[in-house]
């Protein structure tokens, strides 16, 4: 799925997969920090992928 979304133009870095056990709270915090950092580095996605209201003629 990651490959496919990136293939259609969604930048690498927007989709993350991690395996975190319910006991691994510190890993969870680290992963979330890393993801938010990486996503913030990208341009805002709102114009392109985030639908606000339908654009129709």
């Amino acid at each position: 799925m990651k490959n496919f979304l990136e293939h259609t133009g969604i930048e690498p870095g927007r989709l993350h997969f991690s395996w975190i056990s319910s006991a691994e709270s510190t890993k969870f915090v680290d992963v979330v920090k890393k993801i938010t950092h990486e996503v913030k580095m990208l341009d805002p996605a709102n114009k392109r992928y985030v639908k606000t209201e339908p654009k129709v003629d």
Partner: peptide, 8 residues
């Protein structure tokens, strides 16, 4: 990524 997006 930009070109891919535009292509589709």
């Amino acid at each position: 990524a930009e070109e891919k997006w535009n292509y589709f």
